[in-house]
Simulated scan of single mutants.
Amino acid sequence: MAEERNVQQRHNGHGAGEATGAIAQQAQTAAEQMGRAVQQGVGRANAALSAVSERSGEAAQRTGEVLGNFRSAIETSARSQPTTTVALAALAGFFFGAFWRIGR
């Protein structure tokens, strides 16, 4: 009877070790899969960030070109029609002030 218990205890202990090893293997596999998923996510985020950075640079360049054209148009208008240019500037200032007051 004592021998049966010893055999059973050895058998149960052996089975527990195998189960623990299997669980550890499953945990390691899950951790590796999660690591790969994180790396893929980081790669996608970097690609998206690069695309946004490139597009924002292009937008800034275009905005600079538009502002340069706008400045040129105002200078030309001020030289050829100074009275109209001053009147338009005063009107723009009036509307800006009115919207500023409404926003407060």
Rank of each mutant, 00 (worst) to 15 (best):
A45H: 04
T76E: 14
G41M: 01
H11S: 15
L91P: 02
Q9A: 14
Q39L: 07
A87E: 11
Q39K: 08
A78R: 06
P82Q: 00
L49W: 10
G17T: 08
M34Y: 07
N46L: 02
F94T: 08
S53N: 09
T63K: 07
R5P: 00
T84N: 06
A16S: 14
H14G: 09
R36D: 07
F96H: 03
E18K: 11
F94H: 09
T85W: 00
M34V: 15
Q40N: 08
A27P: 00
A47M: 06
T20D: 13
Q25T: 06
V66P: 00
Q40H: 02
I23E: 14
G64N: 15
A31L: 08
L88S: 10
R5N: 06
R55I: 05
A37H: 08
G21C: 07
Q81L: 07
N6E: 13
G97L: 13
V86K: 01
R10Q: 14
V66G: 02
R10Y: 06
Q28I: 08
A90C: 04
A90M: 11
A45Y: 03
R36A: 13
F95H: 13
Q40W: 01
L49E: 15
I23A: 12
S80E: 15
L67P: 05
F70V: 06
S56V: 06
A89S: 13
T29A: 14
S80H: 04
R36G: 01
T85M: 00
E65R: 01
G35E: 09
S56P: 01
T76R: 03
A92Q: 11
A37T: 07
G64M: 02
H11K: 12
A60S: 11
A16I: 10
R44K: 05
R5C: 04
S56T: 05
V52G: 00
A27C: 04
T20N: 09
A89M: 02
A19G: 04
S50L: 07
G15R: 12
G35T: 11
G35A: 15
A89T: 10
E75V: 00
A16H: 15
